[in-house]
Computed example of a mutant assay.
Amino acid sequence: MPTVYVLNGPNLNLLGQREPEIYGRDTLADVEARCRAIAEREGFELVFRQTNNEHEMVDWIQEARQSGGVVINPAGFSYNSVPVLDALKMCEGPVVEVHISNIHKRAETEARWRAESIMSPAATGVIAGLGVAGYELAVDYVARRLKA
């Protein structure tokens, strides 16, 4: 049975508490439950993880590189983590980068660097600004690719 990894970067453990006006009130556990429902419906395994540590994220991506696919919200790693980028480049299945907020719009009112994820060149696709629904869309996309 194929496995899809949903990997979450720094501070997403505080989803629902941290800046709810930007990230919403759903928790990471809520997101995981929705992703698991899709995995169950579509018949694949789901590994769902969060870390604040770059080395741990790299290890998980290396573990996932020959799986069915990777959905990643790199969060703060998006802007400066070359090791995470290099690990993503080794993935054989689809990689979908997810951002809860629209990082491009946020760059209009915050620091410009927020709009420039260095992870995007390693991704099959990017979903940004659709809230936590972006995770569901990403997992659904990977499921479709697995069935194709």
Rank of each mutant, 00 (worst) to 15 (best):
L15K: 02
L12P: 01
I38H: 03
I100G: 09
A33L: 14
R65S: 11
K105S: 13
I103R: 00
P83E: 03
A148T: 08
N53G: 08
S120D: 09
C35G: 03
W60S: 02
G134V: 06
R145A: 12
M1F: 14
T3Q: 14
E40I: 03
Y135K: 05
S101V: 07
R34A: 08
E63H: 05
I103T: 13
L7P: 06
E54K: 06
I38S: 08
R144A: 12
V98S: 10
L15C: 03
D59A: 15
N8H: 12
L130P: 00
K105G: 15
E45F: 11
P2E: 05
I118P: 09
D140S: 15
R41F: 03
E63W: 14
T109A: 13
C91M: 09
A87Q: 07
M57E: 00
D86F: 06
A133K: 10
A39Q: 01
H99C: 07
V139I: 12
Q66W: 12
A111W: 07
Y135W: 07
V71I: 14
C91Q: 03
V139G: 01
E97R: 02
S67C: 13
Y5I: 01
C35L: 11
E32R: 15
W113G: 05
A148L: 06
G134K: 00
S120Y: 06
L28R: 02
